[in-house]
Design a protein around this nucleic acid. Structure first.
Length: 579
RNA sequence: GGCCCCGUAGCUCAGUGGAUAGAGCACCUGAUUCCUAAUCAGGGGGUCGCAGGUUCAAGUCCUGCCGGGGUCGCCA
């Protein structure tokens, strides 16, 4: 319809009713917030008034005349300051139902990305233990975003950056070595400060004992550490992959930080490349404020000139012991992504890494000479509740709740849905009791139930009309003109909005919009169902009227289709029955 | 102190620069005890934190304040 408006505007130009050389870029066509304003509204006259040096209403009137000639358009009116409101013939809406049924779960698919490659990095939790509930949100968000972008025409690579090179994994290795000695019968006492006390390290120790016997006891640390570390990381990574699988998440690429320096030293290359651009230098930093641990040592160090890109201070690339900082390695990692041909990068961060955004964007701008885009989505904290009571967690006391515990308790689909039922940058309360409630208060149930209810209608229809199934010719070829109730047309309008919504969610990198849409669609469907209580003629199954029943079942089939499609994009499964 | 995020109904939150700012919960009123599967309809309730600016048009974009949270060399 947008194209039709542009055509009409061009026609007006040819006729001399509008001046030449207008910029139509800001002309939009969208469903108005207020249903009374019609099915679609355009701001064309408002946008063009100044350029054309005409009154908005004059432009709108001329445009309205043109639009009346468009076949699907039933009515055109000029309203407000100069809005053009369009109304469609019912046949237009009936076509939407047919389109949904024809396209199935690919209804709403788009080609926004035109096949462009895009990299989505998410989770990237340290391989030092199982994932806890805090990681869950970023994991679900990243995965849903990847699916959404895939659905809208991007070639998405989902990626996990393994921090397997720092001091953390050495601490993990030492913890595993202790557990190894324990497995050989030694009393290791308390796990020292700085190491990982969790029980999940025990199996690694046992596996080491099984594989090496007591041989490692006689090795010096520089000999056993790499061995133990490799095994421990592999074990933790397997654990993490299992946790992710429980959420139905599979990254395509697991990228090892260690691999950056394994062959050619890509971190060194990155630093030298930036030095060549004049963006790396030797200098001093001022002591940071708000933190007085007395260990501050003023020294000359290798710095990245991130202040050129809006950062507060330049960032250190080398530690005092001569090794690379985490940031230096991360720069090399992003350089690697760029070298693999990605022009658009998305990183999903936890709230505690928000302070890292500016320097990371600076890095990508510097490395790509401003030609690549990095979008960083920050997921705020999740507060865990059980029946209204906050669940207390302390990492120090080892009482943190793992991702696996939550998934085991409430199930994968509720976790995924609720993690997306908030905008990513707003904090989220997650109540493990509430998501299992079977009531309207629980959005998960409400949406799933809409789908189950639709399926149930089909099952019930069998009594009066055997063979009237979802894919039957009666339903697919139903006389959709029979759909003339206001509630039915409202449902169809919502279905028609799905492709637009999917695209705006993809463009904004905001999958939560989909969750809210599904809730609204489910709500409209339940409302229509309930109207049948008071008004039997609105019930979906009309035993005396097969043609009407077929048309309504077609509508219901279309609703179920879109609910299933939307849930799939969020990473959940539609259910045919509520258990 | 610097930076980032948030501030919208009593509460929890939606709101691709568009018209009279929405939903759920809670509250009030009413309908239903039938039916296809787990109610539904209506109502009250708002200075969109404050003040400027950009725009034909600002909850939305920009700047400055206020309030809440997070974060602040070499950890990751």
């Amino acid at each position: 319809m947008h194209a039709r408006i542009l055509l009409a505007l061009e026609a007006l130009q040819r006729e001399g009713a509008l001046p030449e050389g207008l910029d139509f870029a800001n002309v939009e066509v969208s469903p108005p917030r207020e249903a009374a304003h019609g099915d679609l509204a355009s701001n064309a006259a408002l946008v063009l008034a100044k350029q054309a040096k005409m009154k908005p209403r004059d432009i709108a009137d001329r445009l309205a005349e043109k639009m009346k000639a468009v076949p699907e358009v039933a009515a055109v009116e000029v309203a407000g300051a100069g809005f053009l409101n369009l109304r469609f013939h019912p046949s237009f809406w009936h076509g939407v139902v047919a389109a949904v049924l024809k396209d199935g779960t690919s209804f709403g698919r788009a080609d926004l990305g035109k096949g462009e490659r895009i990299n989505v990095e998410f989770v990237s939790a340290n391989p030092t233990g199982p994932m806890h509930v805090g990681h869950t949100r970023g994991a679900v968000f990243g995965d849903a975003l990847a699916k959404l972008l895939q659905f809208t025409g991007y070639a998405v690579t989902s990626e996990y950056y393994i921090n397997d090179a720092g001091a953390q994994v050495d601490a993990l290795a030492r913890s595993a070595y202790l557990r190894y000695r324990e497995a050989l019968g030694e009393d290791i006492g308390q796990i020292p400060e700085g190491l990982y006390p969790g029980d999940y390290v025990k199996p690694v120790g046992q596996a080491l004992a099984k594989e090496h016997g007591s041989a490692l006891l006689n090795y010096p640390e520089e000999r056993w550490l790499p061995l133990v570390r490799e095994m421990a990381i592999a074990a933790m990574l397997a654990e993490i992959k299992g946790d992710l699988a429980a959420l139905n998440i599979q990254h395509e690429v697991f990228f090892s930080e260690r691999s950056l320096t394994a062959g050619t030293d890509q971190v060194r290359e990155t630093i030298e490349e930036l030095r060549g651009k004049g963006l790396v230098f030797e200098g001093r930093l001022e002591k940071p404020k708000g933190h007085d641990d007395g260990e501050w040592e003023d020294r000359e160090q290798t710095l990245f000139r991130s202040t050129d890109f809006g950062d507060d201070v330049d960032r250190a690339l080398m530690k005092s012991d001569g090794s690379y900082t985490y940031f230096a390695a991360d720069m090399a990692y992003h350089r690697n992504k760029l070298a693999r041909g990605f022009k658009t990068l998305i990183n999903v961060f936890g709230a505690d890494h928000a302070g890292y955004i500016t320097r990371m964007k600076a890095a990508v701008a510097a490395l790509s000479d401003g030609k690549a885009a990095l979008d960083i989505k920050v997921c705020q904290l999740v507060k865990l509740f059980r029946a209204g009571e906050p669940v207390r967690m302390s990492k120090r006391a080892g009482t943190f709740v793992t991702l696996r515990e939550v998934v085991d308790e409430v199930g994968r689909d509720p976790v995924r849905f609720m993690m997306l039922y908030r905008k990513n940058d707003a904090p989220l309360d997650f109540d493990m009791a509430k998501v299992l409630e079977q009531s309207k208060d629980n959005p998960v149930f409400y949406v799933q139930y809409a789908h189950a209810r639709a399926k149930s209608v089909f099952r019930n229809a069998q009594a009066a009309f055997p063979g009237l199934t979802e894919n039957s010719p009666q339903v697919l070829g139903a006389d959709l003109a029979r759909l003339d109730d206001a509630g039915e047309l409202d449902l169809i309008r919502r279905l028609a909005a799905y492709p637009v919504l999917v695209q705006s969610a993809a463009r904004a990198h905001e999958p939560h919009r989909l969750a809210f849409y599904l809730y609204d669609l489910a709500s409209a469907f339940h409302a229509q169902w309930t109207r049948g209580n008071d008004s039997p003629h609105l019930r979906f199954i009309q035993p005396e009227d097969g043609s009407l029943t077929a048309a309504r079942l077609a509508l219901i089939g279309a609703v179920a289709n879109v609910v299933a499609s939307g849930l799939a994009l969020l990473g959940g499964m539609a259910r045919d029955e509520m258990g």
